[in-house]
Design a protein around this nucleic acid. Sequence first.
DNA 1: TCATATAGGGATAAATTGATCCCCTATTGC
DNA 2: GCAATAGGGGATCAATTTATCCCTATATGA
Lengths: 126, 126
Amino acid sequence: MYERKTTPNLNCGLDLIGEVLYGKWKIRLLWFIDQGYQRPSELQRKIPDASRRVLNIQLKELEDHELVTRKIYPVVPPKVEYSLTDFGKTLIPVIATLGQWSDEHEERLREVILKQPVSSDIDVRN
Amino acid sequence: MYERKTTPNLNCGLDLIGEVLYGKWKIRLLWFIDQGYQRPSELQRKIPDASRRVLNIQLKELEDHELVTRKIYPVVPPKVEYSLTDFGKTLIPVIATLGQWSDEHEERLREVILKQPVSSDIDVRN
DNA sequence: TCATATAGGGATAAATTGATCCCCTATTGC
DNA sequence: GCAATAGGGGATCAATTTATCCCTATATGA
């Protein structure tokens, strides 16, 4: 497993939330789990761009941070279900705010993201 | 300058907001600029853990994404001021939501972040 | 003359994150 | 026996992000 070499900054609230929410798929994982997609395979289908492996790793981190719990059913083939903890649930309105903002500004966002490379870098040979 | 080798995912709103807000210091930069700390040196003093260089790079990205504008005063020594664009200002309530959540849960967050390494990894030889 | 302040950037190294590949478990059904 | 199913993990590589180091410029004040 990867071992951190630097100590995280934990000065202000924004550092703290960064520690638990940074990770390419974490916000989506929380969101989809809240929506009822609780099994790993369901989550993979909802987030096909992420590899199985990375989702597992990020789910594990969410679990370590007590935002989700993992319940294993002792059946074959195995069955696992993730749920939000009460703590994790408090994040849902926050995520909703993020989602709402990006939905409202979707078009603008696409523009500014895709206009790369920036004007000064445009190569007229294209 | 670093050149991207993969194309970003832009499927849903959460991908989009990720594109503009990912970056260790970006949220803080937006927040402090909104608070009136507009000059690079002021921002550096507010965020001493970030190097000058990285702040410049992230400010540049915020500018490319039209969240801030950069005004250069032709004086010596040089003077530069960043301001939020109207677009950037729409993010402030979103950031406030993030900040509020993490302030409310500050103690809990510190706990779960610092309890690392997780129980199964604890080495009794310590 | 030299340090300070102010803003910036290139080159490069280090850290972190994400992706790929291949392997394991056990049962059911063909 | 072999494939499919469902969940998982080690090793390793690639991509990305952040940090470090050192350089530019000009004016002011000691």
